[in-house]
Structure formats: structure tokens, C-alpha cells
Design a protein around this nucleic acid. Structure first.
Lengths: 207, 207
DNA sequence: GACAAATGAATGAACGTTCATTCATTACGC
DNA sequence: GCGTAATGAATGAACGTTCATTCATTTGTC
């Protein structure tokens, strides 16, 4: 019985995928190693062959999140317009392959960052990297240069990120609703922000 | 030796104050009843004279938070201008009598809401009430009526709330920094939002 | 049969919760 | 006022449970 789950790397990812589901469902500290092993369909002990302990699993999950954010940023960078880039950023966490699971996880990640310095460092790292990326995105965008009021790209990026995180937090309260609905609301906010940013110079207004 | 900690009400509040500190420090589920009793300077068993169980303590803390938000809304309502009302809302959680403790707690509260339906209901309740309040605040404000682009008070309130929650999430990453610094950054964002909202109609621009 | 992969019962620490017990305070009979 | 009985706030050791972690054992591969 030699499926594609045989290499150590695949096993690690299988465990991380299960851990992600459990963490999103019950939180970092309420999800037990048994929960994770059951979700992955393996034994408890096997997890300890691939991870030193529970904290290592949490760290690996956080690293995975960092990678995901960087990929997202890359996708946004390749969008044809700033508006579309913003839409990519705002809807990422409600239409990814793993739907609204992500919001719950990210909020939990921030909560954990509030008390676990190692997690805090990683989240800070992700945040500042992403912020720099979006700042560049704005600085290089012709729309922004044309329409923006006396506000630096940096300040605008801060605004966008705060808004995005805030929406994400709100998503947690609506986890029972269908993902498309959440995505729709998310898009509406992104477009409102857009309107706010550029509607005063009618030539650049789009929607 | 009859201090002011003698009445049952005071005891309850003493326990809740300690619980709040422990929850902010370690999170709802990592903070133990022993932690709380030690922080309050009483025995474990005594907590169970005033609260049925740990969940009841969490619920009471959540209720307390609801009250705090309502008081904050009242204070915002009495501000002389919409800008000042916004500033009250945006800086509340970093300059209250209990400083940045609150951000960590609120983020944790949302995280808990993601998996505990009872907490979710309460947080939703607080959120919608506060949102209605701010929507009214905007609808009745002369500045808003004058300057706002084609955006309803409701949509604007949503934007403000998302922004506020997002900033709060970011605060968790800066818990080591002095509160005034956090407050300053918070104010800057509020003023930027303000600028965004109204600077295109120069007569209403203030800052 | 040798080696690594995988198991899951066993371990002990930590947790929420209970409850028999203590003891300062109050109420009462005289 | 004084001695005694009753009270209930407060204690913290003890209980049952859950958890992360370990490791002797089994399974599978070559």
C-alpha cells in the first residue's frame, strides 16, 4: 500500500493539514494531539516522529501561513490594476481552497501572538513584509499617484491592512453563512474604500 | 477588619478584575482557575461561591465588555463633532484605565466567538448595537451629510468599525510599546480616514 | 531478518471542580 | 455584659478527567 503519502514531506503536510483544521475548529490550545491524529487518520505517536512537540506544530502552521501570505502578495502584484489587486487581497481569506476556516485561524494566531513572543515575532514579520509589498504596489500604481489625496502610500497601505484585518475579524462572527455571501460583503467594502479613495477625481473613477 | 472588599458585589468584581488580567495574559483557556484565585489573592473554592463554573466567569467578563462598549458609545455620542466622536471610538482601547490589556482580550474574545456559539451571539449583539449607534451618529451629523460621497451612513459605519477592529488586532503585536505611542498611531489612522472622507469638499476639511 | 514506519496503551502533570473543615462574626438567652 | 450557639465566608487537599508525551510493541518493505 504505497500511496503518495509515503514521503516524509507528504506526511508532514498531511499532519499540518489536519492540524490546521483542528486549530480552526477548536483553537490552538483546545485542539488536542489526539484530535489532530484522528483528523489525519494516524496515531498520536506518529506526530512526534515528524514534530518535536505541539509548539513545533503550531510554529510550522504559522510558517505555512507566512508562505501563503507571500504567495497572495505575489498574486496581487500581478493584477492588472490597483483595484483588482485590492480585490485579490480583500477576498483571499474567504475564497481560497480552504474557505472561511482561515479567518478563525488568523484571529487565533493574533490572539496567540499577544502572549507568545515567538508567534508575535513571526506575525509581525509577516505583517511588515506584506505591508511593504502593498506600499510598493501603491507607489508604483498610476491610479494611486493620480487620485490620492495628501496621503503617503505607506499611510494608505496601513489603512488597507487595518480594514482587511477588521473585516477578517468580523468574518469570524459569520462563519455559518455561505462563503460567497462573505466574499460579496468583503468586495463591497473594498469597493467602498476604492470609491472613497478616488471618486473625488472623476476621471479615475471606475465602479 | 472590614475593608471595602466585603460585600458580595465587591467580591464578584474583585474576581472579575483578576480574571480579566489572567485572560488577557494567558487567554481564556490557558488561564486556570488557580491563576485567577492567585491573582485575586483568594482561594480557588471561593470563586465557585460566586460563579457556577469557569464558563460563567467568561460569560460575566463578556457581559462586562458589552457594558463598556455601551458606555463608550454614549461618550462618543456626546462628543461635540463627528471627528471628535471618531477619535473617542478609535482611542478607547488604548487609553482606558486599563491600557493595552483590552486589545489582547478583545481579539481573544473574537477568537472564542469563532467556536463558542454563545460567545458568538454576545459579540454579535455588542457589534450590531454599536454599529447601529454609530450609524445614527453619522446620520445625524451635519459634517457627514455635507461631505460624504455616495455612501450610506450604514456603509460608512461598517468601514469605521472594520478599521477600528483591524487597528485593535495590530495593537496586539505592539503590546510592549507605551500606550501613548499606540494611541498616537491610532489617532493618525482616524485622522487619515477623516481626511479621506471629507477633504474633497474643502469647506468641511478641518485637520 | 533487519530496518524504519507506525501504533496506542501507559505515564504523570495540570486542569476544573468539589467538599469536609476552619474560624471570625453575629445572634441570642440570661 | 457575658457565654454559647449558629452562621456562612473562606480554605485547600482531593477527585476524576484530560492532555502532551513516551516507548515497548507490531507492521510492512526490501
Amino acid at each position: 500500500m504505497s500511496s503518495r503519502l509515503d514521503t516524509p514531506t507528504d506526511r508532514r503536510e498531511q499532519i499540518l493539514r489536519a492540524a490546521m483544521i483542528c486549530f480552526a475548529r477548536r483553537g490552538f490550545h483546545q485542539a488536542s494531539m489526539h484530535d489532530i491524529s484522528a483528523e489525519a487518520g494516524i496515531s498520536v505517536g506518529l506526530i512526534y516522529r515528524y514534530f518535536e512537540n505541539k509548539d513545533a506544530v503550531i510554529s510550522a502552521i504559522a510558517d505555512q501561513h507566512k508562505q501563503r501570505v507571500q504567495e497572495l502578495l505575489e498574486r496581487a502584484r500581478q493584477a492588472p490594476s490597483l483595484l483588482e489587486a485590492l480585490e485579490v487581497l480583500f477576498t483571499a481569506h474567504c475564497c481560497d481552497n480552504t474557505p472561511q476556516v482561515i479567518s478563525a485561524f488568523v484571529v487565533d494566531l493574533f490572539a496567540e501572538a499577544g502572549r507568545n513572543p515567538r508567534v508575535a515575532d513571526l506575525v509581525r514579520d509577516v505583517t511588515t513584509t506584506a505591508m511593504k509589498g502593498v506600499t510598493d504596489l501603491i507607489a508604483k500604481s498610476p491610479e494611486a499617484l493620480a487620485g490620492m489625496q495628501n496621503m503617503s502610500p505607506r499611510e494608505l497601505a496601513e489603512l488597507i491592512f487595518a480594514l482587511n484585518d477588521g473585516m477578517l475579524m468580523r468574518d469570524v462572527l459569520a462563519m455559518h453563512r455561505p462563503p460567497e455571501q462573505i466574499r460579496e460583503r468583503q468586495l463591497k467594502v473594498a469597493r467602498n474604500l476604492w470609491r472613497l479613495l478616488f471618486s473625488h477625481s472623476p476621471e479615475t473613477a471606475i465602479a
